[in-house]
Amino acid sequence: MTDWQNWRTAFLRQARSDWDAYQKTVEFEWPSCHRLHYLQMATEKLSKALLVAGDTKLENLTGTHAAFVNFIRIICNNRKLKNILGMKRSQQMAHFNQLLPLAHEIELLAPALAQNGPNPEYPWKDASGNVLAPTDHPFRLIQQLQKTRQGIQLLKHIDIFLKRFEELFM
């Protein structure tokens, strides 16, 4: 395998491992922060598996956590998805556009992007000066992902992208 193929395989393996961990947190009802932490990591590494195959510079991959929103914006260019989703490209564009706000919220969970606000890893100070721990924060996002149509669809797509990566993206 070439160097970029090794990187793609490694990003994919780690994304799948993070996704497995996310599934376990759901099963055992772990605190929302841990569930969201694994979800954010799985989506970031899934996106980076495709970026490394697209010639994106490695330093741009390791230096940023922002990749998942771009991935969702551009995924409709994958023609193999047409058969799986049963949608034309224009329909896919509309479909994935409505999932973008949730994708953006997942991306912003990375502490580096959370701007000293709520994130699933590190404590932060709120507007009233209280220092809060992620484990005590309710994270409305988890409800949005599990209870809304868009959230359920987005999680289902992530699952498909990871489980059928070789068929869809290689």
């Binding site: 495709l50 697209g54 010639d55 994106t56 741009n60 940023t64 551009i74 993206f169």
Partner: peptide, 22 residues
């Protein structure tokens, strides 16, 4: 993004060329 994030899309029967789009 402050960077060019280029994604890879494989060729298929309809479009027999790999695409890299940013």
């Amino acid at each position: 993004a402050g960077a060019v994030l280029s994604f890879y899309f494989p060729p298929d029967e309809e479009l027999p060329y790999a695409m890299k789009i940013a």
